[in-house]
Design a protein around this nucleic acid. Sequence first.
DNA 1: CCTGAAACCTGTCTGC
DNA 2: TGCAGACAGGTTTCAG
Length: 259
Amino acid sequence: MKFGGRDAPSILGWSVEKVSVRWEKTLAEPDVDSFSKKISGMLVEDVQRRAKFIRIILCSAELVIHLRMSGDIRVESDALPLQPHDRLVVWFTNGFRLAFNDTRKFGRVWFLKEAANFFEGLGPEPLGGLTKNDFHTLLQRHHRQIKPLLMDQRVVAGLGNIYTDEALFLAGIHPLKKSSAISKKQAGKLLQEIQAVLRKGIETNGASIDWIYRGGQFQNELHVYNRTGLACHNCGAEIVKIKVGQRGTHFCPKCQPEG
DNA sequence: CCTGAAACCTGTCTGC
DNA sequence: TGCAGACAGGTTTCAG
């Protein structure tokens, strides 16, 4: 199992001894007291992902984690010292622990008895059987700038700033293009590139762009993200950076023409 | 319905 | 060297 780009032991079958919440707001639900009481003694049955959420399935509840901007998870021996920004720690009975580290405190953890409703509002997984036809229909349903639309988790699940910029570049689509103006053929190409970029990201353990992330190799695959002013890998034009929906947005003006 | 801004946070980098 | 301001892999909420 990979955590934060490093190999870690599988936590399957491990039994929770106790938890500590070192920054209260990290625990979104429920309150610290009932969380501590209820999770103690539970076994880990499975670990899954839905959109950007990590799901740790326990016997009669589940722990849901969102890393947001700066979150990271370690699984390690409880003999090691805790780190400066460890916000929530799950201690197992076998001498190991799971530490949720999060410098910027944006990450959240939920302990849910019933998680079905929790994921209700999320859009489809691009790697989970979404067809080109359905994707095109999705884009037609809105009249929004394509980049913020792709990052809207209610529309499509799992795309963040890096992957969206990269997919739009590979598909040759300007980030401000109206979603409803995207042809069926373009939508097909876009979905294909979204899938390619996500697969590559998973394969390379994500991007390690600044001090927060370690171990990933995806930064070596980037065509536009973080390449402002550099030559486009495809045509040699200068990569441009603009602001779209308050997010830094990188694209090639020649390969991704407006309109 | 769509867009943009502000808020939530800490750490790093840039420019004066 | 110091310090202010901008900026960062995300999401929610609110104003226009």
